[in-house]
Design a protein around this nucleic acid. Structure first.
Length: 398
RNA sequence: GGGCGGAUGUCCGAGUGGUUAAAGGAGACGGGCUGUAAACCCGUUGGCUCUGCCUACGCAGGUUCGAAUCCUGCUCCGCCCA
């Protein structure tokens, strides 16, 4: 849409079209009017805690919304929560988060910033680390702590549930929403974005800004993208995520693993349109997979990933390239299969035995009998060892 | 400060002296089927030099022929009273 020709009301409606909440009512329109009047861009805040090394698809939903603001000429303030990561966001949590080391957080912060650029426009971007201001004097921390009451914090769902369930809640965690709100004070956020799970934190930010005599931010929450299991929120800790830096074949394959029921949601949140009506779920999913690979790699990679997938899962042929696995025939020239599987695929030798028994191990495409467990190295050399459907290695004797 | 309760395998969660490597569920993995790594069905799921051996029910001891189950001390956590 064009910035010049549309009214603030229309722009606000467009920006909020796929948001869950945009509060307070009419707030975004007023901010846009204010910006137009003063001839300044709005400051759109997003805070991310570098608790995991990679950005995943769920996060790109919010980044995409930020990009829309950028394309309208506004400034995105990306806050790398190097300090808040040490606290741990309790949102959606049923237990206290594990604490990360400082080095780990710093390393994650680096990659986060780089990966966010896959979606954001670097020209209208300000990146800050909240360690800049959260490493504050105790006196200042006390002032911040005075802005809110325990009841206010405990009314929030995550805490309420944990409290009711007699689960531990540390004082530090109670601080988290305050620190996030203080970020908004410092960067003078006009708008703060987040997932729906951030609603409480974002709203509390308004109160804290108010306490510090700053204009209150508008909050805009985006739907949460379900993970590849189609059920729970996409998250590193659930292991149901697709990272934006994952190889093309992984992005492609994991997307196809998505349950059909979640396909509509993924289309809506990642493509911004419903799935194509004229094709079935399989082809709609394949089209989505290609789109995602192309977005984070390129068109060529998308085609290659699809070809590799078809070769593997439809034609049941091994991939062109696969790693070599050293074949170490002991003194008697015999190779112990469980040990070979363990060294080649990183499974335990007990797992290897089980997989052999279940017919999950193939040699040149033919199921390998569970007995005998020791085979002469000469019989295996140069052949393709396969574990399950997707793991391959070519055996090479040293 | 006082009283009470809890800690089990990747996770959740049964189990209160003896076929208990430990029910059940989730997850994961393998096989079948298929339209995909969907769905559905079946199976597996502590480790190892594997017809056996080792390790395991918060930690350290103890009782017993035998303990995740009983006793003692300790650690951590929750609740109540103050």
């Amino acid at each position: 849409m064009s910035l010049e020709t549309s009214t603030p009301a229309a722009t606000a409606a467009w920006l909020a079209r796929n948001a869950v909440d945009c509060l307070p009512a009419g707030g975004l329109q007023r901010k846009l009017e204010e910006a137009a009047r003063e001839g300044r861009p709005l400051r759109i805040k997003l805070g991310i805690d570098p608790t995991a090394p990679d950005i995943h698809l769920g996060f790109t939903v919010v980044l995409g919304k930020l990009r829309e603001f950028q394309d309208l000429g506004h400034t995105v303030v990306l806050i790398i929560g190097d300090y808040t990561a040490r606290v741990g966001d309790p949102s959606g949590r049923s237990a206290t988060r594990p604490v990360l080391s400082g080095e780990q957080i710093d390393a994650n912060a680096q990659t986060f910033q780089a990966q966010a650029m896959k979606v954001l426009d670097p020209d209208r971007l300000e990146v800050r680390r909240n360690g800049e201001w959260l490493d504050m004097r105790t006196e200042e921390l006390f002032s911040l702590a005075r802005t809110t009451t325990v009841a206010r914090i405990l009314e929030r769902d995550d805490f309420a549930k944990r409290y009711a369930a007699h689960a531990p809640i540390s004082i530090l965690e109670l601080f988290y929403p305050l620190l996030q709100g203080y970020d908004s004070v410092v960067v003078e956020a006009d708008v703060e974005l987040g997932g729906t799970d951030q609603k409480f934190n974002l709203l509390l930010g308004r109160d804290i800004q108010h306490h510090y005599g700053k204009p209150e931010q508008v909050i805009l929450t985006m739907p949460i993208l379900p993970g590849v299991d189609g059920e729970r929120k996409m998250s590193k800790s659930f292991g149901n995520y697709i990272g934006v830096t994952e190889p093309p074949e992984e992005i492609y394959g994991k997307t196809l693993r998505l349950p059909d029921e979640a396909l509509g949601t993924w289309y809506e949140l990642l493509v911004g349109a419903p799935p194509p009506a004229d094709v079935g779920p399989r082809d709609a999913k394949r089209a989505l997979a290609r789109t995602l690979v192309a977005r984070f790699h390129d068109d060529e990679s998308a085609r290659a990933a699809e070809a590799a997938f078809d070769r593997l899962h439809l034609e049941h042929r091994p991939p062109d390239e696969m790693p070599d696995a050293p074949l170490d025939g002991g003194a008697d020239g015999q190779v112990h299969l469980p040990a070979l599987l363990a060294s080649t695929f990183g499974v335990t030798s007990s797992e290897g035995r089980r997989l052999l028994r279940q017919g999950g191990v193939k040699l040149d495409g033919e199921p390998l009998a569970a007995e005998p467990l020791d085979r002469p190295a000469s019989e295996l050399d140069g052949r393709v060892l396969q574990l399950g459907k997707r793991r391959f290695a070519r055996l090479r004797s040293n």
